[in-house]
Amino acid sequence: MIAFVLRRLTLAVPSLLVAAVTIFVLMRVVPGDPALLFIGDLENQQAITEMRERLGLGKPLAQQFLVWLEQMARGDLGSSIATGEPVSRLLLDAFPITAQVVLIATAVTSLLAIPGGILAAWRQNTKTDAAILTGASLSQSIPGFWMALALILVFGVELGWLPTVGHVSFADSPHGWLRHLLLPVAALVLTQISTLTRMTRSSTIEVLRLDYITHARAKGLTEAAVLYRHALRNAFAPVLTVLGLMLGHLLGGVVVIETMFALPGLGRLLVDAIFQRDYPVIQGCMLFIAVIYTVVNLLVDLLYPLFDPRVRLE
């Protein structure tokens, strides 16, 4: 087990390295003097000179990369051009909000999609199945931002039930926290639910054909026990993969939702930074998200054998 974890960790390192190289190259491809981009103030010649020094711009590119990588690894992500605050501070402030939205959305999606998919598989080729599949196709075809607009219009503007912008921390007011998260989470759930439902359905259909299911039924188990104790256990591994991928997708998709609902999360931070050409923040956000995405995928891989003992830890 420990050997597997170590091996999997060493596999994650090159992928993070390539991500770092990509971000580094992207930041250097931008036309213009990188030092100027990172300072953003034409007049402040001294700061630009210092930044040139800090970025090691006189040195060969490979050496520049190493200098940069060392700074990043130490958590020294520079300061925002717009506000002067350290980027690491901004990231740590924004991340919990994104994490809340994404984790709650994932949990709600699983609670709806997995039983939905099992139901569709159990009632394969019936009206129930067709209804669930049609719903999934529809939800897959609705862009998140349009769903968000519709939710804002109905629940925020027309009915006036829920606030449509901003965020309230749980510590300040649990009630306000819930009210502010309901719409963003609903928008994410409604647009993410289809993939998980379809995956659960197809994976369960495969399993329901197997002999041991017939055997479980023959020995007189209730259908619920057959489905949840026997079929789901076997069908869950591919579902888990999709769940991991979905978490990653959500980290991206949440950009749009955060912009719509003015939630001060990572995505909002990134988009605002892009508009203000705040390169240190853009770079920090990209790097941070790449790390989180890799960690999530790593966790999924490590969890896999727990749900499917046939997958050996190799």
Partner: peptide, 18 residues
């Protein structure tokens, strides 16, 4: 694999920004 370490929307976002 490393490329896939970015959510696709963010990758597209980064490339278009540049």
């Amino acid at each position: 694999d490393a490329y896939m370490a970015f959510p696709s929307l963010l990758l597209a976002l980064a490339i278009t920004t540049m």
